[in-house]
């Protein structure tokens, strides 16, 4: 069976053919046993699927739907603000601690060196992570809206 006939079979079952296509299809149907078998199968399937429908949600769920969506928007904004605030405080705290440590002549050199290397390592990891996420976002941000 060729592609056009397959398409027409689907269209015939769903009454989506033009008059001319329908006549053409029925002419082929009269002499094609495979087509007759498939038509029977598809009609049966359509009958079964026609006996089913979606169950809806209760009205109270729909009434609360918008509130639920809006709460998620608010929470999302809340998380962003809280995260930014936490990062600012953390950076400030680390900066203060390091300033005091380096200004203290009694602090041992190994401690200053160790903390410095650790801090540089963490900054590199952080920058790398941000860069990766940024490029991934640039590449993928349309995946949710484009075919």
């Amino acid at each position: 069976m060729d592609d056009r006939l397959r398409q027409m079979l689907a269209g015939y079952v769903d009454n989506e053919l033009t008059e001319q296509e329908r006549i053409e299809f029925e002419r082929e149907l009269a002499v094609n046993a495979e087509l007759q078998r498939e038509l029977k199968e598809f009609n049966r399937l359509k009958t079964v699927t026609g006996q089913m429908k979606y169950a809806d949600l209760p009205d109270q769920v729909w009434e609360a739907y918008w509130q639920s969506v809006y709460r998620k928007v608010e929470r999302g904004a809340g998380w962003v603000l809280a995260s930014v605030g936490a990062i600012v405080l953390l950076v400030f705290g680390v900066f203060e601690a390091f300033s005091k440590l380096y200004a203290d002549p009694t602090a041992p050199l190994w401690l200053k060196t160790g903390l410095t290397l650790g801090a540089v390592g963490l900054i590199i990891l952080l920058v790398s992570l941000i860069r990766e996420r940024f490029f991934a976002y640039k590449r993928e941000r349309y995946t949710e809206v484009e075919k």
Partner: peptide, 21 residues
């Protein structure tokens, strides 16, 4: 759309055991 429906129905019919009528 027509082709996809055709093949989807064929696979669905097969999963349901072929000619289930």
């Amino acid at each position: 759309v027509m082709s996809r429906l055709y093949y989807a129905r064929k696979r669905l019919a097969r999963l349901m055991g072929g000619d289930h009528g």
